[in-house]
Design a protein around this nucleic acid. Structure first.
Length: 796
DNA sequence: TCGTGGCGGGG
DNA sequence: GTGTACGCCACGA
């Protein structure tokens, strides 16, 4: 069969060893919409040995060659030009055949004389290929290929052998990918379900044409062999590129697999016949040839959402509001199944979960595609990889382009260092305040001062002709030139982002082109902003503590200098944190200030927002602002924290609103008193009294029994399951003893047992007082209806 | 009464 | 398996 040129959008890359030869396997979609498999036999695993400067290179190479074993011969050992932390090094590239053998060779090479370090032996083979051949997934590429006879092994339309990767294709829009969302319900008459004993009762799914299906267990039983078979068949018929689930890596997939195992059924839903899903890196479950995307991972990153349940997240994305959907508590599911009159409600509930999952998938997908194509992470691993790992994949790609060797992962002890400055706020209500933010302060500091492990030097003599930057306070020195690794990477990211934002102007904001570009510029910003934190992370390959310390030191110096400039211009500074300054706004002057900063500090500062009023207490990181359009911004206070009851939060927000909106303190006092009365009369619904806190470690590792720990223990003793990261919702009930002795999971509490005095003393009054205290209001005033002091006295 | 453990949100 | 700074609760000595 002849050669041809093929444009392919890469879904995923993996490898197989076929008759002692490694094959890179590329799963993709071609420009005609065929699902294809490309096989590249030309790539071989390798790693590097860095030698001492005075090493006899050829002799060392010969010794390494002698390590060769027949099962995976060493095919090449040769000196290559590479840099390590910016410096050219004496380095041998060692190539073999079988990827798994790299680990053995690495250990043996380490023991050879003159070998200082072994590098890049811990980079997985498929990633190695993606970097070296520049084949990031979620991108269109052009290959020269030869069609090969279709084997029966893969569920694809065509198979090809790669002769050459020509480059990127000129297609830029992602192809239309077939996607399905799925969700299961399981039978759990005894509380928490266990896959060994409790069958699946509903498997629901939906595709991109809007077609919905439900596979149901059979009565009596319930027996689930049939729905399991039907679901497998469904997936194979639909042949989706993407499967969206919600918490599917931790629940649905392993559960379905365990159920299949009980019937001797293969959960064979991938594009490679007979291959079941398997646990992979970062807690992900991978399905061969398809992209299994667990949307829960993305929800975890949304800090505005406290409870990451599917209904809450779907509401957040505007897919389905919680009030208009069917909600069944998890412990009621078996009952709804058993009761034939209620079963339709359960079916509706299940389908709404599927629709929600699909909707979230569609919202997340454009962003995930951009992160995938930039970092090289397969789309299905974008969610499960941490921020640090995402950036690291990007850095590895860049390092290769620069001829830079990748440092090894190392175990290091945690080392704390000094962070940013936070100014003491001026307490009180201030009018007309501009919040000014330095744009991307840390990335710009890293660029400006060329900070990184490769530009760092020990003493001034080594500064060279161009000289050094010296970090304030810590005194670390960084060569001004040439540009270091971090600087080059960040400049590339920011330049790319600027050009994309320029290009966006050409398009209608509603167009698909605009949306794609917008997601891409967001992804670039996220990667740039992660660089500083990454550098200070002990687990990072490019970890560099002095660099992270220097960044925060220059950050502190920059903001301090900006304050001096502001003061010299007669601008009053109310507050500041890390990269922001709150200044008294006067038109013209703030703009002039921004100009001077840009001239003198070579950093951009911009007006982020203007508050008609802003209120501070003595506390840092807490304020309330009244925006120009009359909205209220609450920062740091209890009202925006997840670990206070809804009631306390509501009251604090309302108090803030009354004070900033009307200046009427007496009105706020009256409001608080009325809530106290309602509480005493038992008129507040229990949901508003629940306090949510996270379990962060195994229960027996807690030093003291905090209320949420105690509530978790009760939950456990009653058959519930507790995992690290779970949020525990509890209320305080009447009785004697410590608060923790009276903390109960709210699901077990009769509302009349709730202790109103706890909520008055520990929730409502403190939350209200946090703001009202500044206006001279005391606890007594809020508690008593009696007028020890006329309300009139508070009108300021 | 006070030091400490614990937690969350924010720039 | 990004960073540090900060406020405030409840526990328990």
């Amino acid at each position: 069969m002849g050669e041809e040129v093929l444009d392919v959008f890469i879904l995923d890359l993996s490898y197989e060893v076929v008759r002692s030869e490694p094959h890179i396997v590329i799963w993709g979609i071609d420009s005609s919409g065929n699902r294809v498999l490309l096989r590249d036999r030309s790539f071989r695993p390798y790693f590097y040995a860095v030698l001492e400067d005075d090493a006899p290179v050829e002799q060392v190479a010969e010794m390494i060659r002698r390590l060769s074993v027949p099962s995976s011969p060493i095919t090449e050992v040769k000196p290559v030009d590479r840099k390590y932390y910016g410096r050219p090094v004496n380095v041998l590239r060692i190539q073999t055949v079988i990827p798994e053998s790299v680990r053995d060779y690495r250990e043996k090479v380490k023991g050879i004389a003159y070998v200082r370090e072994v590098l890049e032996a811990d980079i997985r083979f498929a990633l190695r290929y993606m970097i070296d051949r520049e084949t990031p997934p979620s991108t269109w590429h052009r290959f020269r290929v030869r069609k090969i006879p279709r084997s029966n092994e893969y569920r694809v339309s065509e198979e090809y052998e790669v002769l050459e990767r020509i480059g990127y294709s000129d297609i830029t829009k992602p192809p239309s990918m077939r996607s399905i969302a799925f969700d299961i319900e399981v039978y759990n008459p005894r509380g928490s379900p266990r896959a060994e004993t409790d069958p699946v009762i509903i498997i629901g799914a939906m595709n991109d044409k809007g077609e919905k299906v439900q596979f149901l267990a059979e009565d009596p039983g319930p027996r689930d062999a049939k729905p399991l078979r039907e679901f497998i068949e469904y997936v194979l018929n639909e042949d989706p590129d993407i499967l969206f689930g919600y918490n599917s890596a931790y629940f649905d997939i392993p559960y379905l697999m365990e159920r299949c195992k009980r019937y001797g059924l293969k959960f064979d839903i991938g594009r490679r016949r007979g291959a079941e899903p398997r646990p992979s890196v970062y807690g992900h479950y991978s399905i061969p040839g398809r992209l299994h995307v667990d949307l829960y991972d993305f929800a975890e990153e949304i800090h505005e959402i406290k409870i990451k349940s599917l209904d809450v997240v779907a509401e957040y994305f505007g897919i389905m509001s919680r009030s208009e959907r069917t909600n069944i508590p998890w412990y009621e599911i078996a009952r709804y199944w058993d009761d034939k009159s209620k079963r339709p409600i359960l079916l509706r509930y299940s389908m709404e979960d599927v629709i929600s999952t699909y909707g979230i998938g569609m919202k997340i997908l454009p962003f995930a595609i951009q992160i995938s194509s930039l970092t090289g992470l397969p789309l299905d691993q974008v969610g499960s990889a941490s921020v640090g790992h995402r950036l690291e994949w990007y850095l590895m790609r860049e390092a290769y382009r620069y001829g830079e060797l990748v440092p090894n992962r190392e175990e290091r002890p945690y080392e704390p260092y000094k962070g940013a400055v936070v100014l003491e706020p001026k307490p009180g209500v201030h009018e007309n305040i501009a919040v000014m933010d330095f744009s991307s302060m840390y990335p710009n500091i890293m660029i400006k001062y060329n900070i990184g492990p490769d530009t760092y030097i020990d003493n001034e003599e080594e500064c060279g002709e161009d000289g050094c930057w010296k970090a304030p306070e810590v005194g670390y020195l960084f060569r001004k030139s040439p540009p270091g690794f971090y600087k080059r990477v960040l400049e590339t990211l920011l330049k790319l982002r600027r050009s994309i934002r320029d290009e966006m102007k050409k398009y209608d904001p509603d167009s698909i082109e605009y949306r794609i570009l917008d997601e891409r510029q967001k992804a670039l910003k996220i990667l740039a902003n992660a660089a500083y934190g990454y550098m200070g992370w002990v687990g990072a390959r490019w970890y560099f503590k002095q660099g992270a310390e220097a960044v925060t030191a220059w950050g502190r110096a920059t903001i301090k200098r900006a304050i001096e400039i502001a003061k010299s211009m007669g601008l009053e500074v109310i507050y500041g944190d890390t990269d922001s300054l709150f200044i008294k706004y006067s038109k013209g002057l703030a703009e002039e200030f921004a100009e001077r900063i840009s001239r003198e500090l070579e950093m951009e500062i911009k007006i982020d927002k203007i508050y008609r009023k802003v209120f501070f207490t003595e506390a840092k990181k807490r304020y309330v602002g009244l925006t120009e359009n009359g909205g209220i911004d609450i920062v740091g206070f209890e009202a925006v924290r997840g670990d206070w009851s809804e009631l306390a939060k509501e009251i604090q927000e309302e108090v803030a609103r009354i004070i900033l909106g009307t200046n009427d303190v007496s009105k706020a006092i009256e409001y608080v008193r009325s809530v106290v009365k309602n509480l005493e009369a038992g008129k507040i619904p229990m949901e508003k009294l629940v306090i949510w806190k996270t379990i962060t470690r195994p229960l027996d590792e807690y030093e003291a029994t905090a209320p949420h720990v105690r509530a978790a223990k009760i939950l456990l003793s009653r058959g519930g399951r507790i995992a690290i990261g779970d949020k525990i919702g509890y209320v305080i009930v009447r009785g004697a003893g410590r608060i923790s002795d009276r903390a109960m999971p709210y699901t077990f509490v009769d509302p009349k047992d709730i202790d109103p005095s706890y909520y008055i003393d520990h929730q409502v009054i403190p939350a209200a007082l946090r703001i009202l205290e500044y206006f001279g209001v005391t606890e007594r005033t809020l508690r008593s209806g009696s007028r020890s002091r006329s309300l009139f006295d508070y009108s300021r």
